[in-house]
Amino acid sequence: MSAIPQLQDDFVVIRRPSLYRRLVEANGAWRVNLNLAILIFIIVLGVIAPLLPLQNPVKPLPLERLNPPSAEHWFGTDTNGMDVFSRTIHAIRIDFTLAISSVVIGVVIGAPLGAISGYYGGRIDDVLTRITEVLQGFPQILFAMAVLAAAGNSLINLILIIAFYNIPVYSKMVRSVVAPLREVEFVQAAKVAGNRPIAVVFRHIIPNALVPVFSQLPLSCAYAVQLIAGLSFIGLGVSIPTPEWGAMIQNGASQIVFGKWWVSVFPGLGLFFSVWVLNNVSDILKSLVVRRA
């Protein structure tokens, strides 16, 4: 057997461009900078909200219920007389934590499960698919009610419930993309190179199966907020004084017909804007994993 020949040291090792450079090349500097800036701005706003000179978001003022926007209350006050502006900003904290962490947990567990069941096929696929179908078949709100009643109404439990709902969504999505990838030549080449099956799945298949996942991410985030609002409505999820967009929109929904639009519209704008930015950012990140043919 011939040994690998000795190497000289005069080769230069080349670095590839940084992550940020690759994003800018694919999307243009403006798009990347603007969207990342807005996202970072929203997150920073949420993080430093308690330090800002805002009014107390959970203090009801019984004499100032449903006041329209004014110099004192920029976004007006809600049915309990709480400052909508302050609440809208404080809600970033809970909504971003909930939506992003639950979706991330769902993807981190769901995508590998889907990839494994799509790649291995056979018995493993059958078992995993049946399990995800059982998970999906369970009525979402009922399941949340049962868990919250049994395990207690806490933020962690809420996150886990929503993550639990996202697992089958992402595992099915990834599985459908992975199954046809199994016979593609570069996957065969990965086997020839000596990758273990699990390395084939994680190094070669999952990165190429993430495109639909990136399209789904912001939608899942929005859905998570919507689900929390729904749970808040039936007295689960986030309890009344805690600032949370879904619950705030719910709170003001019955007031819109009386012309008191500000109670719902401002948290609605906050939600809309966040989902829009998350959508843009996930589109930008998608350019890293789009399969280039």
Binding site: E185, F186, Q188, A189, G194, H204, P207, R291
Partner: peptide, 20 residues
Amino acid sequence: RRKLQMVFQNPLTSFNPMMT
């Protein structure tokens, strides 16, 4: 594996699109 290698017919699909 390292002693038995292969070159595939279609070069466009035999490389992982995510890898340099």
